[in-house]
C-alpha cells in the first residue's frame, strides 16, 4: 500500500454514555484516536465501559454527548451512520448469524442489498472469504448446524465480505468452548498481519501480546492506561492495572 495511512481513522472526543437515566455511567468523558492499520486491544474488568465504547463507534449505542468521527465522517445523521456502518465491520460475542439463512446467504445478504453487488460477484467474494476462514465446505449449511468456533469464523467472514476499513471485535471468543478459541484467534491473527485496522475487546492476553500494536486498559468508565502491550504487561504504571493483571494472569 503506497497511500499514506490516516492517522486518525477513528476519533472519539469527550464521549459520555450512561444507562438507566444516569444511574449507571458506562463512559465518562472518554477521548481516543485510533490510527489506520493498527491493532488495538481494549481490556478491563466487566462493566468498565469497553463494550459500550466499541458499540458507540458504529452507533449501536447512541452516546449521550461527545462526537465520534470515523474516516472523516461525523456520526450524526442516519445516512452518515449507515455509511460508516458499511465501512466498519463488527463481530459479536454471540455471533448473531442469521439462523434462517445458509452460511453462504449470510455472507451474500448485505453485499447484495447494501453494496448492490451482482450475485456472481458477491458469491465469489463469499467463497474466497470462506476459504480464508477455513470452512469452504460449510457454505450450504445452516448456522445451527455449525460449532461455536465455526459460527464465529462465519461471522468474521460475513463482516469482511463488506470489505470494511475497520473491524470491531466485541469479546469474540468469550462465548466459545476453550478448544474452539484458537481457531478463531488464528483467523484474527491473520487479519492483524494483513494490516487491517482492528479494535478488539478481548480477554485473550496471548492475542494481545502477539498481535496488538497498542493496548488500552479501561476501568470505571475511563481509560486508565494507553500503551504498548510490552509496557503494559511488563511495567504497568497504574496500581489499578497491576491489580487487574495479577487477577487474570495466573
Amino acid at each position: 500500500m503506497n497511500r499514506t495511512l490516516n492517522p486518525e481513522i477513528i476519533r472519539i472526543e469527550s464521549l459520555c454514555k450512561s444507562f438507566h437515566h444516569g444511574r449507571i455511567v458506562a463512559l465518562d468523558n472518554v477521548s481516543l484516536t485510533i490510527p489506520e492499520g493498527q491493532v488495538t486491544v481494549i481490556i478491563g474488568p466487566s462493566g468498565s465501559g469497553k463494550s459500550t465504547m466499541l458499540r458507540c463507534i458504529n452507533h449501536l449505542e447512541v452516546p449521550d454527548s461527545g462526537t465520534i468521527t470515523v474516516d472523516g465522517i461525523v456520526l450524526e445523521s442516519a445516512q452518515d451512520i449507515n455509511k460508516v456502518r458499511t465501512e466498519v465491520g463488527m463481530v459479536f460475542q454471540q455471533f448473531n448469524l442469521f439462523p434462517h439463512l445458509t452460511v453462504l446467504d449470510n455472507l451474500l445478504l448485505a453485499q447484495r442489498i447494501v453494496r448492490k453487488r451482482s450475485k456472481a460477484e458477491a458469491q465469489s467474494v463469499a467463497e474466497q472469504l470462506l476459504r480464508k476462514v477455513g470452512i469452504p465446505e460449510k457454505a450450504k449449511a445452516y448456522p445451527g448446524q455449525l460449532s461455536g468456533g465455526q459460527q464465529q469464523r462465519v461471522a468474521i467472514a460475513r463482516a469482511l465480505a463488506m470489505q470494511p476499513k475497520i473491524m470491531l471485535f466485541d469479546e469474540p471468543t468469550s462465548a466459545l468452548d476453550p478448544e474452539m478459541i484458537k481457531e478463531v484467534l488464528d483467523v484474527m491473527l491473520e487479519l492483524a498481519q494483513e494490516g487491517i485496522t482492528m479494535v478488539a475487546v478481548s480477554h485473550e492476553m496471548g492475542f494481545a501480546r502477539n498481535a496488538a500494536n497498542r493496548i488500552i486498559f479501561m476501568d470505571q468508565a475511563r481509560i486508565i492506561e494507553d500503551t504498548t502491550p510490552q509496557e503494559l504487561f511488563e511495567s504497568p504504571r497504574e496500581e489499578r492495572t497491576r491489580q487487574f493483571l495479577s487477577k487474570i494472569l495466573h
Binding site: 458504529n58 449501536l60 442516519a78 449507515n82 455509511k83 456502518r85 458499511t86 466498519v88 465491520g89 463488527m90 459479536f92 454471540q94 448473531n96 448469524l97 442469521f98 439462523p99 434462517h100 445478504l109 448485505a110 442489498i113 447494501v114 461471522a155 460475513r158 463482516a159 463488506m162
Partner: peptide, 27 residues
C-alpha cells in the same frame, strides 16, 4: 427475535426496513 439479530443487520449497513424485511420478519 434476539436483539443481536437487529444489531448484526444494522452493523452491516442495512437500514431499519431492510433489516426488518430480510432478517427479523423471516424469523
Amino acid at each position: 427475535i434476539h436483539r443481536g439479530q437487529m444489531e448484526a443487520a444494522r452493523s452491516l449497513g442495512m437500514n431499519y426496513f431492510q433489516s426488518m424485511r430480510h432478517v427479523i420478519l423471516p424469523q
